[in-house]
């Protein structure tokens, strides 16, 4: 009797499990499809992930670097990264998928670009407008704010992103390699962001919000928030003289007044001797075209 019970445990139960598993195959498939459908439904309206933003940002950066040469000046780029990292940790988005990186571009046009994900470029022309580290910090804080607010990514049309999600919902995408349609949508998304950054510029409200956060970042880092006022003042004067430039950061009188009011509330900091010295060491002399150090 005891032997019969043991046989039931060791032979009968595995047999029963095997039999049941055979019957359950169809049920499992149905469950699997249901789970996938549920995930697809939940994913149909998801925002872009930080890693997806990172890959769009890399492509935008690659496109910018195909337009403007990189200034291969190690001392300058290290300096930009030190100032930039000091600011980024005080922003509303201190971390991104692969962190913030800063670099100079060899262009006389005064401009700066914040690629999605945290790669930030500032041109030789804009660096020449900065008279001290605090003004340089004002430029970088403004660009960090654009990254923090995802202004670049937000320029991708909703219809395009919806098309991406619909495409991702198709079973084939999970099985095969990279579908041509997805590649096209990726390229179009990159173009959307590139056009906003380099050609059309951000909306007025996006610029105002970036100014607001930049002032906050500057004050919290210990830089003079008033540096943004002095820099925008110079850019406004320059844009009157040189039409066509600064198209992506047009400093209007209203914008300048608004920044001045905000800075007035926070008070102005003082320039620090060590900051003046190190700025002059790196940017005291005008950077020549094609300079490598």
């Amino acid at each position: 009797m005891k032997g019969g019970r043991t046989a039931l445990y060791f032979v009968g139960i595995p047999l029963l499990c095997w039999a049941l598993s055979g019957c359950a195959v169809t049920g499992m498939d149905v469950a699997s499809i249901a789970v996938k459908t549920a995930i697809a439904a939940a994913d149909a309206s998801r925002p872009m992930t930080d890693s997806e933003e990172h890959y769009v940002g890399r492509a935008v950066a690659a496109r910018i670097l195909a337009t403007y040469p990189l200034l291969r000046d190690q001392g300058l780029n290290t300096y930009l990264n030190l100032v930039g990292q000091a600011l980024a940790r005080r922003s509303t988005r201190p971390y991104t998928f692969k962190g913030y990186h800063f670099a100079a571009l060899d262009s006389h046009e005064p401009n700066a670009f914040a690629c999605p994900g945290g790669m930030i470029f500032v041109t030789r022309g804009l660096l020449a407008l900065c008279e001290n580290e605090d003004e340089l910090a004002a430029v970088l804080a403004h660009e960090v704010s654009h990254v923090a607010h995802k202004d670049g990514i937000n320029s991708i049309s909703q219809a395009r992103w919806t098309s991406v999600l619909i495409l991702l919902g198709k079973e084939a995408v999970t099985r095969a390699g990279v579908p041509a349609e997805l590649l096209t949508l990726f390229g179009e998304s990159v173009e959307d962001v590139f056009r906003t950054l380099v050609v059309n510029g951000y909306s007025r409200s996006a610029e105002e919000e970036a100014d607001k956060e930049a002032i906050k970042i500057l004050a919290e880092t210990g830089y003079a928030p008033g540096a943004l006022v002095s820099l925008l003042g110079k850019m406004e004067t320059l844009s009157k003289d040189r039409a066509g430039l600064l198209s992506t950061h047009p400093p209007t009188k209203e914008r300048l007044d608004s920044v001045r009011t905000l800075c007035g509330e926070l008070g102005t900091g003082e320039l620090h001797a060590a900051r003046i010295q190190r700025f002059n060491d790196i940017l005291g002399k005008p950077i020549q075209q094609g300079a490598t150090r």
Binding site: S32, V56, V178
Partner: peptide
Amino acid sequence: DEVALAGKGFTPEVEAAY
């Protein structure tokens, strides 16, 4: 498959093809 739909957007593979 569980995370395929969430993770199969703009990936390193898309970047490589682009």
